[in-house]
């Protein structure tokens, strides 16, 4: 059991290392380097270019630079942004906080709603309520986030005037200010969460409802309400919990679009700005952070699955 958990932890570290190598090699393979990207047209002047490369330590061998970079990373030093000329940790920190506020708010609102609706439509399978909700969910999960975002702004901010359309608060505003400035970014993100999780819960409940032990309970004469509450739902919903964790991790990349659409000062919008500025060290750092979040969420989902399902605790499976 403990060996298994240690194994998962080890695997997570290896994954992180591979991500770091991939991000580093990806940038290495590209024509030009941080200096040519930063200097733009000035890069034709050899002495300026050499000067910049000396300053950023780009004249060392790639292997040497990788270990220097990875060593700094392990100590929590993400390097220095080229454009902003400040430590990346200082730039990323507050914005990462903002993104987590947004993602957690969306998940707190979305996950219970999704599970509730998923169960409700599954119990009314193929009836009008199910067909309407399931089709809406399918449309919501296939529509591009930026279309949903722009539609919500048009309807709720411009036509109905219920809330502000975009976030005007600064990145270091208090958490509640950011969240209540406009609920629309959290709603957009939650909508995508709800659609995916709802469909998953629905199919899990429907699958479980066809299981032999439900038929058995029904034959024993257990009242229908009790079958649903004690036999069906626990067995249908528990296995979806780890998968919900994975879905949340997957959908986190949606913040890149949602934050840009609402001008929300988080790490996703920072990523877009960093790309527009061609600030490679910053883009690398953000990519790593997304990888780190994904790996930790997967790890938690894995451990949760093991905690909820004893069958996964043996090595053989």
């Amino acid at each position: 059991m403990f060996a298994l958990i240690l194994g998962r932890l080890g695997a997570a570290w290896i994954t992180l290392l591979v991500i770091a190598v991939v991000v580093f090699v990806g940038v290495e393979l590209m024509p030009g380097d941080a200096c040519t990207a930063l200097l733009g047209r000035d890069a034709v002047r050899v002495e300026v270019l050499e000067n910049c490369r000396d300053r950023m330590g780009l004249n060392r061998s790639p292997v040497e630079r990788f270990f220097a970079w990875a060593g700094d990373l392990a100590q929590g030093d993400l390097g220095v942004s080229m454009k902003r000329e400040r430590p990346i940790v200082d730039i990323v920190g507050p914005r990462l906080r903002n993104t987590l506020i947004l993602a957690v708010a969306a998940a707190l609102a979305g996950v219970p709603l999704a599970i509730g609706l998923g169960v409700m439509v599954a119990l009314r399978r193929e009836r009008p309520f199910d067909i309407i909700v399931s089709t809406t969910a399918l449309v919501a999960m296939t529509m591009p986030e930026f279309v949903v975002a722009s539609l919500l702004i048009l309807i709720f901010a411009i036509w109905l005037g219920w809330s502000a359309g975009v976030v005007t608060a600064a990145y270091d505003a208090p958490a509640l200010t950011l969240l209540f400035a406009t609920p629309l970014p959290a709603v957009t993100l939650a909508l995508v969460y709800v659609a995916h999780i709802l469909r998953m819960v629905r199919s899990s409940v429907i699958d479980t409802a066809g299981a032999d032990f439900i038929l058995m309970a029904r034959m024993k004469g257990v009242p229908e309400r009790r079958i649903v509450r004690r036999h069906l739902l626990p067995n249908a919903i528990l296995p979806t919990i780890p998968v919900i964790g994975l879905t949340l991790a997957w959908l986190l990349s949606g913040v890149v679009i949602v934050e840009s659409a609402f001008n929300y000062p988080g790490i996703g919008r920072l990523a877009v700005n960093a790309v527009a500025d061609r600030d490679l060290p910053l883009v690398q750092a953000i990519t790593l952070i997304f990888g780190l979040i994904y790996v930790s969420m997967t790890l938690i989902a894995d451990l949760l699955a093991m905690a909820l399902n004893p069958r996964l605790r043996t090595r053989r499976l």
Partner: peptide
């Protein structure tokens, strides 16, 4: 490991460069 980086970010690294 590659899949744990959002696709849009992989593409964005290349756009940046």
């Amino acid at each position: 490991a590659l899949s744990s980086i959002p696709g849009i970010l992989i593409v964005m690294i290349f756009v940046a460069a």
